[in-house]
Nucleic acid binder design. Structure first.
Lengths: 354, 354
DNA sequence: ATCCTCCGTGTAAACGGTTTCACCTGAGTC
DNA sequence: GACTCAGGTGAAACCGTTTACACGGAGGAT
């Protein structure tokens, strides 16, 4: 690979001049620019990014730390991040990872100096020391932090309000016995959704929280299946069930189908997240829509703002609002299959390849 | 941020010694190691990755170039890449983009020196000059290259064979008039699948290719919808349709449902890719399974091997085999709904969060 | 003619590490 | 006691850039 010295020698100028040409400095004469550019082209030269970063202390890269296994939700967030980052001319340095906090610290260390900002998505991890110390010299945004954090900028989903709205919707459809399949304990998303559910019940005069109508899941599809089986085996059967996320809701619907329970006639089912699949279940799943890609986009914007910000003391905490995606599984549109089919057709995003 | 000099001064040793400690050199005494580690911990020091890369010429990062818009297919490939890269201790430097080849060249340049290897996914781009010149000084793997390429390692999907097998399966179910919804012209995936379809028809004694049974799409869901509408309006209606990818197949099935055509009784439908959604359509979509994550994983392995390889002259071209995912939409399992439901439940990968 | 400015360019010092080589010391050998 | 040897350490070169500063020459003002 040709270096700046090769170009300088070949063009008969100093390396400083070559550097100036590639940094659009206005102090170089037209002829010199043309000469240097020509030589660079011929030698197939381009400034080495690493060397550049070392001296300028800017890398034009954002770090992204993902949880160990990630599914559709995270893919979508990454896409949002990527799109936004690209707009600002940034790459993404991605590292999935991090079962334990030692693995996370390790990943963090190896990002050290390589990124201009960091986005951490680790819903179970409560921002350990490693992240905080990283945040002292580099802007960090926590996505869906596992707990309330003061040391970093954060951006999170309006879990409580989304759950509240959805349960209120079920109430408005006439449901009185509304069950919930909860997410994993110690997961903030799960806890906030549960809280929203409780609050909505209470607000509707249906509370306090009916323990017999709550069942535990862990955000995976199989756990939704098990949860549904457990729920329908209980003495008091609900008329509607609010499931902690869409993956579990799909499991719930499989279980119900196998048990001969018709959705939504016998039991209404609603989820949370609005993953792409939600539109394709039968019946299509009503769910709380989270603009996942926007979540990533906002994270990038927050980082960009943090870089410009003079006082690093003040941290920002953004909440991304949700909306209801009402389809057929809750019974609100029951029977209007065609409309649902039509909706399916127009909402999907195109793909480039196969 | 503390530098190596700070640690050296504080510990009363030279920077060389500190460096050795952090590179597990065996030539340092136990006491010195302990001392340096302690000081480093106290100062919160970790070697700067960029400076390290500059001198060692290794970055522990792989570049990933994506097409402009990407959907589920590419997310899945990235996940495979990420998983495999992580196993080797590598990060991913991701850059989506690249409508035109100038944008691609730009992205390529900014990766210059920042990565130890590069994976390019750009199905429409025919490996322009920029990629080739990059490949002269850094291993490059092309994923699903737009054409046959000799200059780089490549890895691609067995499009022809997958299509061939699927059409043969349809034939074995007794279908005689099998239509095809093609992918975009000039897309190699699309062309190879078309070729497989033709060859299978000919092999079954049903060829040559029936022009009246072919209709054009562009791999998007709406285009599948339009294609189906066009197809059923034609005089000779097929009994089965092989759709170029799953996204279009979903569009096809919406169109058929709206038109009152029952799948698979009136018309069998099969797709290609086995995207996650394929199991959730009604009826579940029979399709050609591509192990997408494995595709990414293989790409990483190829890069790792290329780095070890002495002679850079010999390029490898790997083909990833496909298999059939037979569900209900082709009629082969018609009526066995429970089994399908069960399958759905066990195949899905879990997600960590909501 | 002298002095200033301004423009274009070169020199050299960073940036934060790794690594080669030389040096020192103490132990072992004859 | 001189010599070898090996283990531990430090000095300095180097990686490929950017950039502060110096410098020289042209041109205008005095």
């Amino acid at each position: 690979m040709a270096t700046i010295r090769d170009v300088a020698r070949e063009a008969g100028v100093s390396i400083a001049t070559v550097s100036r040409v590639f940094n659009d400095s206005s102090l170089v004469s037209e002829e010199t620019i043309a000469l240097v550019r020509a030589v660079a082209e011929r030698l197939n030269y381009w400034p080495n990014g690493v060397a550049r970063s070392l001296i300028t202390n800017r890398t034009h890269a954002l770090g992204v730390l993902l949880p160990d296994i990630y599914g559709e939700f995270f893919s979508e967030v990454i896409r949002g991040i990527d799109l936004a980052a690209r707009k600002h001319g940034f790459h993404l340095l991605v590292s999935s990872s991090h079962a334990d906090s030692e693995a996370l610290a390790e990943a963090l260390r190896s990002m050290s100096g390589r990124v201009d900002g960091l986005i951490v998505m680790a819903p179970d991890v409560d921002a350990p020391l490693a992240i905080r110390s990283f945040a002292t010299h580099c802007p960090v945004v926590l996505l869906n932090p596992g707990q309330d954090v003061e040391d970093c900028d954060t951006i999170s989903v309006a879990n409580h309000d989304g759950a509240f709205e959805m349960v209120r919707h079920l109430v408005s459809l006439g449901h009185q016995r509304i069950a919930m399949v909860r997410g994993p304990a110690r997961n903030l998303d799960a806890e906030q959704r549960l809280q929203g559910y409780h609050d909505a019940l209470r607000a509707a005069g249906l509370g306090p929280a009916p323990a017999l109508l709550e069942v535990q899941g862990d955000f995976t599809e199989p756990s939704g299946y098990e949860a549904a089986m457990e729920l329908i085996a209980r003495p008091t059967r609900p008329t509607a069930v609010f499931v902690g996320n869409d993956h579990m809701a799909i499991g719930v619907m499989s279980a119900l189908r196998e048990s001969g329970i018709v959705v939504p006639d016998d039991l209404a089912v609603v989820g949370f997240d609005d993953i792409a699949m939600a539109r394709f279940t039968s019946p299509p799943l009503s769910t709380v829509r989270v603009n996942t890609a926007l979540l990533g986009e906002r994270a990038v914007e927050l980082l960009m703002r943090a870089k410009r910000r003079a006082a690093p003391g003040i941290k920002q905490h953004e909440v991304l609002p949700t909306s209801l995606a009402i389809r057929s599984s809750c019974g609100a549109r029951h029977g209007r299959r065609d409309a649902a089919g039509r909706q399916v057709r127009t909402r999907t995003t195109p793909t480039t390849s196969g």
